[in-house]
């Protein structure tokens, strides 16, 4: 009878623990859900604080960064100045602690450039990479891409692509690309190359899917661009709408924008989409 007596208080305690722990966990989830901002101290502080463990600290910060972004991939589009500022500071700190950390620079391009359009921030980080990892062809390639796609500075873009083409492991088409850039033919081609490169670098499936969707859209637009050129060669004039491509029997139907918008032909001959989800 006595062992039962000893057991009962223990049972009560355990039951109470179960209830209160669950309660706390619920509260914590609510708190963490509310997008609370992790704070990354700038490297002037984390550097000295890390003493001789700067490399380890940079790894931990990158890990925190990946979990921060990874748990919010669907919300990235809604990120505001606060979140992007935080991401920028984090990546700056990581690369101050370890200037050779390729992963951080990759994320800089993937998120700051591609997702947020914060080209100045991205380029600043990539220039750091250019100084510290001089043999990585992807660095000048990304900088070049930024200049081409976002900043519309074709001359600089060509210079960077040229630089990239000379580095070990560079894709052979880069030299050609650099040469042809000054002639405006198919701007989407560069984007396609870039996204294909990005996709091979990504391990995260959600990120991959997002990039592939974007790639598909670009491919469609490139496709339509080619068809418009074909129309011009055939009809000796620019089509007024994309539907004219169908009537001219160049294509059988218009491709569907994966982002749900509509492909339109602009007056200057460029293909455009009404969906705002594809940042241009």
């Amino acid at each position: 009878m006595t062992w039962v007596k000893r057991f009962i208080p223990l049972l009560f305690l355990l039951a109470g623990y179960q209830i209160l722990l669950t309660n706390l966990n619920t509260q914590r989830s609510l708190y963490l859900e509310k997008d609370y901002i992790n704070l990354t101290l700038p490297s002037q502080f984390t550097g000295p604080m890390a003493l001789e463990f700067k490399g380890l600290t940079s790894d931990i910060l990158l890990f925190k960064f990946m979990t921060f972004v990874g748990s919010r991939t669907d919300k990235i589009a809604t990120f505001g100045e606060e979140q992007w500022g935080h991401i920028n500071t984090t990546l700056q700190t990581i690369t101050d602690l370890d200037p050779y950390f390729w992963d951080a620079y990759l994320f800089a391009e993937m998120f700051l450039a591609l997702q947020a359009g914060r080209i100045k921030d991205a380029n600043h980080l990539l220039q750091k990479a250019r100084k510290n990892i001089p043999n990585e062809w992807r660095v000048p390639f990304y900088i070049g891409f930024n200049h081409y796609y976002f900043q519309k500075d074709y001359k600089q873009a060509a210079a960077y692509f040229m630089e990239a083409s000379k580095l070990p492991g560079a894709q052979s088409y880069l030299a050609n690309l650099a040469a042809r850039l000054t002639v405006f033919t198919n701007q989407h081609q560069v984007g396609i190359i870039f996204l294909e490169e990005m996709i091979t670098e990504t391990n995260d499936n959600k990120m991959k899917a997002s990039l592939e969707k974007r790639l598909l859209t670009l491919k469609m637009m490139a496709f339509l661009n080619d068809k418009v050129t074909l129309y011009r060669e055939k009809m000796h004039t620019m089509p007024k709408t994309l539907n004219e491509l169908i009537t001219a029997e160049i294509i059988s139907e218009l491709p569907q924008d994966p982002y749900g918008g509509e492909f339109i032909l602009l007056q200057n001959g460029q293909i455009y989409t009404t969906s705002k989800l594809l940042q241009q």
Binding site: G55, L62, D204
Partner: peptide
């Protein structure tokens, strides 16, 4: 294994930091 690409870098960081610590 939590990291993406530079596993070598992470491994060395962790090992050497453990030894120092």
């Amino acid at each position: 294994n939590l990291f993406g690409h530079e596993l070598g870098k992470i491994m060395v960081d962790l090992n050497l930091s453990t030894i120092s610590f």
